[in-house]
Design a protein around this nucleic acid. Structure first.
Lengths: 199, 199
DNA sequence: CTTGGTTTTGAACGGGTGTTCAGATAATCC
DNA sequence: GGATTATCTGAACACCCGTTCAAAACCAAG
């Protein structure tokens, strides 16, 4: 007989609902402007009950950000060898992945200043990992001569800023489809790193 | 005899100090996380005294953002006719201007969600004016054939996102000088819009 | 020195904050 | 159905919030 599923348990229902509510509210109004009571209200529970699911508000924020970045790193396609194809995959992936979770993306770079120092360092390390993968692609392409990037580190930051910017304006159902946006951005990125169009 | 300078007046000293403190604290910790008492403490005054200089906290934030954007619009160089030269001027100006006032820049796009609807609309209108100027440059260059931008509106947003990203990492005294950063970004922007290097 | 005005204080107002915890409630197991 | 255990409530804690305002302090002019 496996360990009992435990009694009186709504934990597996309420838990995700707390995280969802926190994600949405933090994204919309900001961490500092959202009270635990408001999150609880959204879930349909009293504030005290939240503390069955997080030790405190700060950890709730931290977990949302960390989980998002870990998901990002796990979902990211891995190297295949061809720097240009790799960069294209990176661009399309970045836009697509971020488009699917606008709230998490927004929080992960708007609420950095509300993290306590240790938590901040942990999040920054994860983000850095992601950036490093793009930097590796650019550096490799620069060495083999398919890219013209004088400074791969700066090019990395420039490209990521450009791509993440999509989230500030793109909404499904607008003038452009997501894949059209991906086409346009891939075109701009490819050119910005000095790679000639392939036709 | 000109109107008296009024008596007991420290207004012209305290006023700017309030704005400076608010700018710095809002940028560092966020609007919602900064109390009027903390701003007052920074100025060396009691909280009640702040209300000689702003009707309320919200207006204090709004004024900081509005004044920043008005300054931005006023400082921006005007058109000269040559789209490529114009774009280069825009890129270098944007990086330079924003580098000089990191706190105001940070606030102006991090605290948008803390603006009441009317204030938000006013700020957005100003930002839009700025973006329109870049879009006009790109559109003109596209028409005359010196730029290859299929969608000037998106290109505008992409370029601005890329340029504003500089503020998140560049600090004077680091590996690169500001003018080197301007050179690199101008290179990337020029390429991204399909304009050939001029030598 | 007195007058008149500006600026600041300091206390108060009503209300919201994150967090804790004893007790009530509900769900499963035997 | 009774026991067990996870979950939730509701009140309490100490503290902070933006804002107001009468009274005090301050400064310059006459």
């Amino acid at each position: 007989m496996q360990m009992a599923r435990t009694a009186g348990s709504h934990s597996d229902i309420t838990g995700p609902r707390v995280r969802d509510a926190a994600l949405r509210l933090f994204a919309r109004d900001g961490y500092a402007a959202v009270s635990m009571r408001r999150i609880a209200g959204e879930v349909g529970v009293q504030a005290g009950a939240l503390y069955n699911y997080t030790p405190d508000k700060q950890t709730l924020l931290f977990d949302l950000m960390r989980d998002h970045l870990i998901e990002l790193l796990a979902a990211q396609p891995q190297d295949t060898g061809d720097a240009v194809a790799e960069l294209e995959r990176f661009v399309r992936f970045h836009i697509g992945f971020h488009h699917d979770r606008p709230d998490a993306v927004f929080i992960a770079y708007m609420e950095l200043r509300n993290l306590e120092p240790d938590n901040f360092a942990a999040i920054e390390a994860l983000r850095r990992q992601y950036e490093d993968r793009l930097e590796a692609i650019l550096r490799r392409g620069a060495q083999t001569g398919v890219f013209a990037v004088p400074d791969p580190k700066i090019a990395t930051l420039a490209v990521i800023a450009m791509l993440t910017g999509v989230n500030t304006w793109f909404r499904a159902g607008g003038r452009l489809r997501l894949d059209e946006v991906q086409d346009i951005y891939w075109d701009m990125v490819r050119r910005s790193v000095g790679s000639a169009p392939d036709r």
